[in-house]
Nucleic acid binder design. Sequence first.
DNA 1: TCGATCCTGTAG
DNA 2: CTACAGGATCGA
Length: 269
Amino acid sequence: MPELPEVEAVCGKLRKELIGAQIRAGHIARRRITGSQDRGEVEKMVRGRSVERVSRRGKNILIELSGALIMRVHLGMTGNLYVVPDHRLRPAALSAWFELADGRGLLFEDTRGLGALDVHDTDGLRKKLTGLGAEPLSREFTGEALSVLAAKVRQPVKLFLMDQRRIAGLGNIYAAEALFLARIDPRKPAGSISRARLEALRGTIVAVLREAVQSARRGYSRPGGYREPENFAPNVYGREGEPCPACGGKIRRIAQGGRSTYFCPRCQR
DNA sequence: TCGATCCTGTAG
DNA sequence: CTACAGGATCGA
């Protein structure tokens, strides 16, 4: 269930726990997560390498290994990546696990198995990530940048926000929340939104993501996996039929691109 | 650019 | 049983 904030929280935790650790052995449990790469090849490539850095690009976790190789992990819908004290502690639904030299384990748990894990050299990674859009929490993500991205786009703004080739990291929840706060109708073509309202939207995107990063950090701030922190309270997401927190009107759910969109038809126009 | 598809679990 | 789930990719 990870969008940018959850992925960022995972990265933060891995940075603390994994930097300097050496991988004794890697095990890919689900064949399909490595895509076109061979499972055995991936296991071989990571063996004996140490973790030097952990970073994030969009929803991708990048684990930089010694020898200039990078392991890329995408959590998909249900993935989680975390360190356990003993690599022999292995839950069901593991897509992959890694035995660390100090006996700990790095686990890639993923019930639905829609996540991905592959290993690249610097150039291969660059190719893999080309096409990813702007980082919404970077300095380059200005109102001007957003309006350039949105210019002439006929796509509904909600789908536009979720399109990773334009903006990298927003998903179904935070796209809906940002649009609610900016009072923009999710069905509106992205290119038809005024410069001023796009500026406002940029602000709500950043605010929603920053807030969610903090919240997600709390959710991950205990051993094992992720727990939803108590203060995770979306305004509209998942609240079909409930009163809008701003105007009291009924929150609606519609389908866009095969996903649910929640919004307040009275506030968002 | 839309719809089907990859998977598994859970709620109704 | 069906519908749906915080994702991404592929083909028509």
